[in-house]
Design a protein around this nucleic acid. Structure first.
Lengths: 192, 192
DNA sequence: CATTCGTTGACACTCAGTGCCACGAAAAGC
DNA sequence: GCTTTTCGTGGCACTGAGTGTCAACGAATG
């Protein structure tokens, strides 16, 4: 019950922040492939070995930044009242994730742009997203949905998610992501 | 004019077949991660260096086996009469790809199972699929569709594709993939 | 003050992937 | 038919990602 987190935990968080910021900064300038882990750890001031204690791969240091969006979506679906239709839960989850991107605009936009534009990063991100899909589908099944239908519904929702992200991040002058999501909702709603 | 392919091209094809079969065989037994490129080339009887002349990565040797499905889908959409709705073209493309999987059951099933069950392979496959999505969306835009709508439509179609593949490949006793696709059609048709 | 636990850095190692060059065979030119 | 170019291949060396191991250090606990 201390303040909130133990001293060790806070130190860990500092290292994570230092590494992610160093990676994001360097990769934004030099590109992902030409940036080595040695450069990142040199900027962050930790050893190469420590990097891989915090992140499973060079891709992970950026993909991890978007991991909470998956948690957020799953939590939103889980918290949704069970007597409402499953489709409403999915739509709310999408809205929560996109709103979060909009609110943390500066950082989210930098990360998303880099991830979507870099094939190896995109690959790892899509793999992660596939895990989200499994989790979301499981939640829908727990509500009584058919497994195949649930898997496809989750897949459609995530397809809408990345479509919005792409359109949002790849525009020179980013439009309101919520407006984009509304357009996507109109299209996908009858299929959920 | 010659038979069909030059002698050199046929020799190339032999090497490709030898490597893919060696990789598929070995990975099915030992798993993807624990199988080294050195083992594959030892079985196939070529040098390590030659492997990377044919495939960009260790993942590529399997993902490449599914590449023609993307080509098939794009060709099907492109060949579809322009006066019919875009959604019909997408549905037909999906049907063409799934039918092809059903027809080449033995090999397709082996590959798909391995790819879907192995995270790094899945990642590369999804990245490839993302390229298919861009191509399909471009074809739809060429038909006069709205870019955002087209991108989402292609994403939904591919979500249905993998949902069918998953259900098909992960079952102990595979059901008819066409029947699965019909169920998926019912769900996604109103969103295209 | 002594001990234990967790984090770190350093070293060594495997393996993926690439650049470079030399060799051998097939194809093209004289 | 013989040279010459071309192309595919193998061998080698190198960079960089990722992992196992161990010793050192600091903080929490007795």
């Amino acid at each position: 019950m201390k303040p909130t987190a133990s001293l060790a935990d806070r130190k860990r968080q500092v290292v994570v922040d230092e590494l992610t910021e160093a990676a994001l900064q360097t990769m934004a300038v030099k590109g992902f492939e030409t940036t080595t882990v040695d450069e990142i750890v040199a900027v962050a001031g930790v050893s190469r070995r420590t990097f891989f204690r915090y992140f499973a791969s060079k891709e992970d240091v950026l993909v991890q930044l978007l991991a909470y969006l998956g948690d957020l979506m799953q939590a939103t679906v889980a918290a949704h009242p069970a007597d409402e239709p499953a489709s409403a839960a999915l739509l709310e989850a999408l809205a929560a994730a996109i709103e979060d991107c909009r609110d943390s605009r500066d950082k989210a936009l930098r990360v998303v742009r880099l991830v979507l534009a870099t094939p190896p990063l995109l690959a790892r991100f899509l793999e992660r997203q596939s895990q989200w899909q499994s989790g979301l589908a499981a939640s829908l099944v727990a509500r009584g949905a058919d497994p195949f239908h649930a898997d496809l519904s989750a897949g459609i929702a995530l397809a809408a998610f990345v479509a919005v992200l792409r359109r949002w991040a790849e525009a020179d002058e980013p439009e309101d992501p919520i407006a984009l999501l509304d357009r996507a909702f109109i299209q996908i709603a009858p299929a959920l």
